[in-house]
Design a binder for these strands. Structure first.
Lengths: 218, 218
DNA sequence: ATCGCAGAACATGGATCCAATTTCAAGGGA
DNA sequence: TCCCTTGAAATTGGATCCATGTTCTGCGAT
């Protein structure tokens, strides 16, 4: 009877909140009330508190003592530096991943890209784009590295969504082209080329994103 | 009456455990029992649980559901990649910090280096070396970046201590020389040189550290 | 003697109640 | 009218008790 059985309440709450935050249902800056979350998700306040701590470890929220938790509001400069961190860390994750990527992994990545090219809805695009990139790092067996990459994606998710809403369809074409170049390099197991395409991909996105002042309050 | 007054219990417990882990009093691999910590630090189990979640967010421990928490044991490869992550992230933190470093900050950094050169005890050296490097990043105003750098120092602290115990005094001379080169570049506000010295410093340490197989179990 | 299995001891996860802090609104004074 | 103060409501933090899951021990069967 030691089946995984019912997931722990705190993990359930964390998963639910994680989804809401990543999909934008919880706007940055708004306080997340423990009581409200507890009764909405059918749990007591205690697992909610644990879940909030988990989400802080994932870079999704910040907790202020005796105040509460909320999705942080970032200014343009913070988002820019977060992207610069991505430009440095993700190539490392990719290089560590490439030697361990199986053919099945690569087929999965190709499948994701095929779905990305067929999609119109921004919400689906964001989720699949995230899944695509994380899949290319999935064979990296260093937990700390994968965790930090996920943190960077988490922290910038809201601004990526806002960016996609103002960017035109032309951007999607560029993204698709860059993704396919990256996939080709991966299938050749060419770490040097893959790293080059990835850095270019992230850098171009950063420049375009921070070039939209209307996405930020400052 | 709204003085900061007594720090929150969970923060006190977290600070105590943080110190014990960083000083090596809690060996990697040993389970951290909530009840034991609670009665030793004069709190109930609840703030201990919160503290363990905080330390997870800081990269100091890992929590296994229904099992408990412990300081993770890393193999040589993980430590090596953690150092490669430092080589990529810390230069960025330094570059972001340099323009905002005040003369008082630099004087503080110089003072720390002077104390480092006078110290024999390994425990003090580790604490001051950490404080030295973090001080050079202290003017970086991007919280996520500073937090990640601290995580990297936390995760590798145990192996740095073990390394210092097998390394000779000769290593200390090299460290001091590299620190002083770094300080000079900082005082010139020369980001390019500072980054160069820092990368070399971390890279040399990585190579020497992972070159000691006796520090790892595998 | 070794492996398997049951049951007890132990540790973590969760619920409820209470305390402490913060926030917000109303009232009083300059 | 504005600002400061005061107190009550709302919210988070903590303690105790109970439920659930895991680990270890010892008994029994092969």
């Amino acid at each position: 009877m030691s089946q995984p059985s019912a997931e722990a309440a705190s993990a359930r709450v964390a998963a639910a909140l994680r989804g809401e935050i990543l999909e934008g249902a919880i706007a940055p800056g708004t306080w997340i009330r423990q009581e409200e979350v507890a009764e909405r998700l059918g749990a007591s306040r205690l697992p909610v508190r644990e879940a909030l701590r988990m989400l802080t470890a994932e870079g999704l929220i910040t907790v202020e003592p005796n105040r509460g938790a909320r999705v942080p509001v970032l200014d343009r400069r913070e988002v820019e530096v977060l992207y610069r961190m991505r430009e440095r860390l993700e190539p490392l994750a990719l290089v560590e991943s490439i030697p361990h990527l199986t053919d099945a992994d690569l087929a999965h990545v190709r499948g994701l890209q095929a779905r990305i090219e067929d999609i119109d809805d921004i919400r689906d695009f964001l989720a699949l784009d995230r899944e695509f990139h994380l899949a290319t790092y999935s064979a990296c067996d260093i937990d700390h590295l994968q965790d930090m990459v996920v943190r960077l994606w988490n922290a910038t998710q809201h601004y990526r969504r806002a960016f996609m809403q103002v960017a035109g369809a032309q951007r999607r074409w560029v993204v698709n082209a860059e993704h396919n170049l990256l996939i080709d390099a991966l299938e050749r197991r060419d770490g040097v080329d893959a790293e080059r395409y990835l850095v270019g991909h992230i850098r171009r996105t950063r420049r375009e994103l921070v070039g939209h002042p209307e996405l930020f309050t400052d």
